[in-house]
Amino acid sequence: MLLWALIVGLSFPAVGLMSEGLPPLLLTAMRFTIASLALWPLVRRAPAFRPSRQGLVLYVLMGLCTAGFFGAMFWAAHRATALSMSTLYVSVPLLAYGLGRLFGVERRAGGLLAILALGAGGALALAWAGKAGQAGGLQLGAGETAFFLGCLGSALYPVLTKWGLARGWLPDGAGVRTFWSLVVGAVLVGLMGLAAEAPRALAAMTVSDILLVAYLGVFSSGVTYWLMQRGTGALTPGAVTAYTYLVPFVSVVLVVVGEPERMGWQWVPGSLMVVLAIALLLRRPVDPPATPAAPRRCAASS
């Protein structure tokens, strides 16, 4: 999950390098397709590769979650700063914890909730530091609103995964789960893109745009969702998504490296809070998830 946080943190500036005017939904479908093709040789002979009927329904819902998040990410790329987007992303752990409680896959854990609050406070402090000296302070614009809705879908993704694993509707292999959710997501978001956007706009893509989409497809989509699936198999949704608190910290490091003149004391409190939250999370014993009892039927159904 530490590697996951690093890749996600690097993806926000990468998205901002894309040319303006490109269709975000179709770009997202391209990302998912590239990620699926990269995973195909690794999972096609895996046990329980073919999904059950119940599993297919869950994959559709999970595909919608990923499609919503990445579609919002592309759309907001030129309407919100990379630091603002990565900071909004810190709402995901608290949302995942609450949704996990609602679905019965997250136990009541005051210690975890305190860690989530500490990390969220640190991320917000980094946001204030990033906005220092700018008129208007933190504002909620159209880009930020759309991206927050995408974050809601991102929070629901591990909850649905944990819920499906508990009921035996999803296989144990993280690669298989990642592959099918991305395939379904590519189909769904591609259909939405064809209906709402102009495919001919893709002709404006430059070589650098194509390389960026390929990078984001393999790493920011394929690898990160495989890592999250691996983590979700062992941790609760709230604990898994808590590592998103490192994402704005990565963005801050990039800002400081690229613009060292911006380095100052205002970055220290938030950075320390985020690092402390992750350290406490790593030292915290893994609690068994509160999973509803259900027969494991995935292998038989497949």
Rank of each mutant, 00 (worst) to 15 (best):
R108Q: 10
G168W: 13
P260G: 09
G190D: 15
A76D: 07
G130R: 11
L165T: 03
P13W: 01
A300I: 05
T178R: 05
F147M: 07
S36A: 13
G217K: 09
K162F: 00
A123I: 11
L56A: 09
R284H: 09
G175Q: 14
A242L: 00
L94T: 14
L3Y: 04
G193A: 08
P289S: 13
R177H: 03
M205L: 09
S301P: 07
A77M: 13
G16H: 10
G71E: 04
G121I: 05
A132K: 13
P237F: 05
L191A: 03
L118K: 09
G164T: 11
G193E: 05
L124S: 15
A29V: 10
T241C: 15
S36W: 01
G233C: 14
A125M: 13
S19H: 13
S271Q: 02
M1K: 15
A72P: 02
G55C: 02
W75G: 00
L58V: 12
I115L: 03
L83K: 02
A196F: 02
A14H: 07
P93I: 14
G222D: 01
P93S: 02
A67M: 09
V43P: 04
G9S: 03
F148K: 05
G231H: 08
T206P: 08
L165I: 11
G258F: 04
S302G: 15
I278E: 12
G270D: 11
P13V: 04
G270P: 04
A14Q: 06
L191D: 01
A299F: 09
A109T: 09
A234S: 06
P248Y: 01
L124T: 11
T81L: 06
G21C: 02
L113H: 06
L138V: 01
T244S: 08
A198P: 10
V57R: 05
M228D: 06
G153W: 02
P47T: 01
P288N: 03
L83S: 01
A123T: 15
A294N: 10
P292C: 14
G98N: 12
L94R: 14
W4R: 02
V159Q: 08
L126H: 12
G168T: 08
G150K: 14
V223E: 05
R262M: 05
V184G: 03
D172K: 06
A290K: 08
G231T: 09
A279V: 15
A129K: 07
Y215F: 14
A277E: 07
L138Q: 07
L56R: 11
E106K: 06
A82S: 08
A174C: 09
T161N: 13
V240I: 14
M73I: 02
